[in-house]
Each structure stands twice: as C-alpha cells, then as structure tokens.
C-alpha cells in the first residue's frame, strides 16, 4: 500500500563518507524542500509491515527498531533524494547495512522546511547538521551565501569539497584546531555576521543554543532546525514537543525549522 505520504523507495547507492557516516541515494516518487525530513523505517521493506498476517512466532520484531527514524533531506534530485546520516544506535546501524537495490518504507516529506528570504544568507552546519544545510545551499544563489562549518576535528568535517563545488564561500572551525579556526562555529559567526543577513543553522543543541542566543541579542533573522524524539512524525501523537514562547509546538509538524523569534 502506497499513498500520498507513505512511499517505497529503492536504494540507489550507499557509501561511507567518513567512518561512521553514510550517504544514501533513494529513488522513488520523493520530493520536498530543504529542511523537511523523511520518517524512515530502518529495515528492508518486506517484512512485518507488508505481511500483516504472519503467526506471531514468525515475526521477530524483537530484533528490529520499532519506531521510524527522522532524516533530513540532504539533496533533492530528479527522481529521488539523498540522506546523509551518522550511525548512532540500532536504527542507523541497520540502515547502514542495507545495500543497493534494497527497498525502504518512507513517510514524507514531513514538516516545514526553511523559509527562504531574499537577503544574503549565512548557513551554519555543525557535525552531521550539515546534512540539511547542503540541500538549502543547493537551492540558493552561491554568491550570496557564506557557509560556516564546524566539527570536533578535521576527520569529522563533512562536505567541505561539495560546498566548494557549489561555488560557495566556506569557513571552517574545529574544536581541536586541526582545520580552520580553533573553536566553535559561533566564533566564526561573530566575525561574519552583518546586519541584514539571514542565518540558517543546524547542528548539536549546544551550538544551536548559542546561535539562538546570539540571534536574539542581535535581533538577527534566524532559522534553526530543531531535533526532538519522535513517534508518528505526522502530528498525531504529540511526542515531539518543543517549548516555545506560545507553549509546546510539534517539531514534526510546526517544525523542524523554527524562526528564532518563536523560541
């Protein structure tokens, strides 16, 4: 059963970009916009969810993740998308073991993506947070974009060549100083932010918190992609609550991209 949002995609390729981090190409009727995500069943699409009438003892659900996992759109292509993900636990581990030709069950595109402003853009990506930032970069005019990339160390830096390939001006910061400036991306932001630029950011929570604080103090136009643990990904279970000025919002439906003014 496929329907408007529930899709079957086949894996076109899967490659390990840096140790523990994979890029996966998916083909199917997939679309969306930068900042939106797909809610993915991290297993081959051939088992319990299709055959709904197997005797219980033949359904070894115990070895599989139960819930879907959310992954941002990393690239939008003709006839498909790419995701970029880091192996964290059981779900991403199982995803990383899948091969070209395997099929996946996806829900999406979910949520609200980045709302693109006319003003020059500063893109900020920390760690695996560069995944959705790249999709956004591809949709913007390179000359109006500065991209700030942060990672713990040089070996964990992602996509520097790809951003350069788009003709985008990139700046790098690493925690240990092994590449670019020593320190976090906030220090880069302090040097590159000027009024009238819009900040778009995704990365670990401490990084986002400091960017949110910076944006508020400088009344900067700023959008951040927030993460929260999810159930349905469809707005139905209220599990993905994020505290905002106007009470809890749903990350899966009202977000995952939020305007800093709302937070």
């Amino acid at each position: 059963m496929q329907s408007a949002k529930c899709k079957i995609a086949s894996i076109e390729f899967q490659e390990e970009v840096v140790p523990g981090c994979f890029r996966m190409g998916l083909s199917g009727e997939l679309s969306g916009s930068p900042g939106q995500f797909f809610h993915i069943l991290c297993d081959k699409e051939d088992f319990s969810y299709k055959i709904h009438n197997l005797p219980a003892n033949r359904l070894s659900l115990k070895k599989k993740p139960i819930l879907r996992r959310p992954f941002s759109i990393h690239r939008l292509r003709e006839g498909g998308i790419e995701i970029l993900y880091k192996v964290k636990g059981i779900g991403t581990r199982m995803l990383s073991l899948l091969k070209k030709g395997d099929t996946l069950n996806l829900l999406g595109p979910c949520g609200q993506g980045f709302r693109i402003k006319e003003t020059p853009a500063i893109l900020v990506g920390g760690g695996i947070g560069v995944a959705p930032i790249f999709a956004l970069a591809e949709s913007l005019k390179p000359s109006s974009v500065t991209c700030l990339l942060g990672a713990r160390t040089k070996n964990e830096l992602l996509l520097t060549k790809e951003f350069q390939g788009l003709g985008i001006n990139i700046k790098i910061a690493t925690d240990d100083g092994s590449c670019g400036r020593k320190g976090n991306v906030l220090s880069l932001l302090l040097s590159h932010y000027t009024h009238l630029k819009t900040i778009y950011a995704c990365g670990p929570l401490p990084m986002l918190s400091s960017i949110i604080k910076f944006a508020k103090e400088n009344s900067a136009s700023c959008q951040v992609l927030m993460e929260e643990r999810m159930g349905c990904g469809m707005g139905g279970c209220l599990c993905c609550a994020l505290p905002t000025k106007t009470g809890y919002k749903k990350v899966c439906e009202d977000g995952p991209v939020f305007d800093v003014e709302e937070l």
Binding site: I66, L67, R229, L238, C239, P243
Partner: peptide
C-alpha cells in the same frame, strides 16, 4: 493541558515508553 516536558518518547526493547501527559 500543556502536557509533560520533553523528551516524551523513548524506544525500549520491543516497546515504546511515552509521557505525553495528556496534552
């Protein structure tokens, strides 16, 4: 009702814990 503070869901072996708190 506002409901409980996040996180509100976690996956455990063969199951899911939720604490939406009737939002």
């Amino acid at each position: 009702r506002e409901g409980n503070s996040p996180p509100r869901i976690v996956e455990t072996a063969c199951g899911v814990l939720n604490s939406v708190g009737l939002e």
